[in-house]
Design a protein around this nucleic acid. Structure first.
Lengths: 210, 210
DNA sequence: CCATGTGAACGATTTCACAGCA
DNA sequence: TGCTGTGAAATCGTTCACATGG
């Protein structure tokens, strides 16, 4: 129900439900049950219902969920009914690939500015690389909501500070450092190596068991 | 202690500890306390000690942890003391950027094969793009441990099946689908859009509070 | 009858508090 | 004394079981 703190993992699962609802819609389906969602996502039906119950009653007893409606409600919950504007800093290999990452646009995120300290003026999609020193000025014009940091770890905090000063509300950080941000800024750190290391751990575990 | 099931989040934190231990070593430090690790990672000191306690007693009471030693022990735990060989499938923007991702090599992962259905023969680093149809043959020669899937979601399961048939032990999947894999294969799914959606959720939360 | 919504039971993880030892 | 290692308590998340209502 309302007014309870929601675990982040619930939000992650909602994001997954949202994705598979789109796929079901594309297949022309209209109704789905928690069991159906479970099959497509690997999440237990109970869990699916509990996750949704945090936010309201979206289903019909004995029937299931109207897919279109549930999709709409989830997008309202996670905020993807708006079109957040993204600024990305760091156009190395990874950064460059994120600029054109099809998944972002598909979920309603708009790439609205790209920044670096070199290759200024180079074109990506329909944006040109701007110098990071112009971030604040351009942010005033464009109004970025969310920043993605893909710069070397030594300069990541600097870039974060610039973004925050310019009014960015959330940061997705791919640099392997813990960035210091004020209370009112949301931050999510992603270290891609970490995922390989988790797999490494499981592989070692098995190997050592034998 | 030994022989208890370890939560995956503990492994993720070990990976972080490992990273900051490297940084401390580079700065010439020798000893670190759980409090020091806490400062550098944002994990509580209690949590740090509990995480390490799953695997043994690595510290000295009243003193702290020898950094070099702890780093060695963690790398033994998560298996990064070995050099896992990686095959990557899908050399689009994201895939291409992962081939040369500096973080992977830095943590002991070796990019050992790259595969696609087009751009065959193109050079990345010191590897050439091979056709995915030759995966099994090349896997026999090279002995890949771990596969990274960065292909469109429609063909991701196919690619996974090929990798598994060729003896791959773990898969990191960037395609937004739940892949079916046998019990003995480890899989980790990453949907980059999900991270943006989590941030979107927190931004909406705040906006709606006002 | 069927699938949702939800308290209650359970299980897992984190925090607390302190004993143990250099 | 200072910091680790660890049971016990508290918190958090998941699963169970069933009442509810179309």
């Amino acid at each position: 129900m309302k007014n309870k703190k929601i675990p982040e993992i619930t939000i992650m699962r909602l994001s997954t439900y949202s994705r598979i609802l789109n796929e079901s819609l594309e297949k022309g389906e209209k109704i789905i049950s928690s069991k159906g969602i479970s099959t497509l996502t690997g999440v237990s039906p109970d869990q699916v219902r509990k996750d949704l119950a945090y936010f309201g009653e979206f289903g019909v007893r004995g029937i299931g969920y109207n897919i279109e409606e549930l999709k709409y409600n989830i997008s309202k919950i996670i905020g993807t009914n708006r079109n957040w504007k993204i600024a990305i800093a760091g156009i190395g290999h990874l950064g460059g690939s994120l600029v054109t990452y099809p998944g972002f646009l598909a979920r309603g995120f708009i790439m609205a500015g790209i920044f670096d300290v070199k290759n200024i003026g180079e074109k990506y999609g329909d944006l040109y690389v701007e110098h990071i020193d112009n971030f604040e000025k351009i942010a005033k014009e464009v109004g970025f909501d969310l920043g993605i940091i893909v710069v070397p770890r030594e300069v990541a905090q600097n870039v974060a500070d610039i973004m925050i000063k310019s009014g960015i509300k959330a940061i997705l950080n791919f640099a392997p450092v813990m960035l210091e941000v004020p209370e009112h800024v949301e931050i999510k750190n992603i270290d891609l190596s970490m995922f390989l290391e988790i797999l490494s751990y499981y592989m070692s575990l098995k190997h050592n068991e034998i």
